[in-house]
């Protein structure tokens, strides 16, 4: 799909509704450069899929709770999303955002060998929020997130990809860029600043 197929990203964008983030190999380092930059009282929910092993409890939420000014939780089924909160997908479940603003989990088949799947989260958020969704694809060694980011753009949302040259694993950002050539290509510091900026505009 070329950039021309996407609806234009308007200058005065509608209020963002949620940020969705996907990361795989190198996720902890990358997220450590992004999530702790979100200020307390950040006005958006942030939903994160990290590829983690299915058979043990994930340390992600505990790890980032200590580093972050915003609240950090592992998502529970049918939990209403709250602003200023980071939700991690639990191991072995897909995480989806519903139009009613509630999180849904699913044990459906892995997608691209992944459960949780970045594509599943992004596609659901694109469907739920349309132009109000901001999708961010970070480092990773597979192609998960590419189809999801395309869905985000097709719905009029904002696509952000970590600059592959700065990613610990470049395959995932590269695949996302191939699927979504007009995405903003940013370094981790720039992504942190961009997400903070969404909060400013929201006030």
């Amino acid at each position: 799909m070329t950039a021309a197929n996407h609806p234009p990203e308007p200058e005065a964008r509608p209020r963002a509704g949620a940020v969705v983030v996907g990361a795989s190999a190198g996720a902890v380092e990358a997220l450590s450069a992004v999530l702790p930059g979100l200020p307390a009282g950040y006005p958006l929910p942030v939903l994160v899929v990290v590829h983690v092993p299915p058979d043990k409890p994930s340390a992600m939420a505990d790890l980032f709770r200590m580093k972050c000014a915003v609240a950090v939780r592992e998502a529970d089924d049918k939990e209403p999303v709250a602003p200023g909160t980071v939700y991690f997908a639990p191991p072995d479940y897909h995480l989806l955002l519903g139009r009613n603003g509630e999180l849904s989990l699913s044990s459906e088949e892995p997608v691209l060998f992944s459960r949780p799947s970045i594509d599943v989260l992004f596609e659901s958020a694109a469907d739920a929020l349309g132009p109000g969704v901001v999708g961010v694809v970070l480092t990773g060694a597979n192609a998960d997130g590419a189809a999801g980011l395309r869905a985000v753009r097709a719905a009029g949302g904002t696509a952000v990809v970590q600059d592959p040259a700065t990613a610990q694993a470049a395959a995932m950002p590269r695949a996302a860029l191939a699927a979504c050539p007009d995405a903003r290509v940013l370094t981790l510091d720039q992504i942190a600043a961009f997400l903070r900026g969404l909060g400013d505009r929201h006030d």
Partner: peptide, 9 residues
Amino acid sequence: YSMASLTRR
């Protein structure tokens, strides 16, 4: 049913 995942299926 939860529409987010049902729609996908």
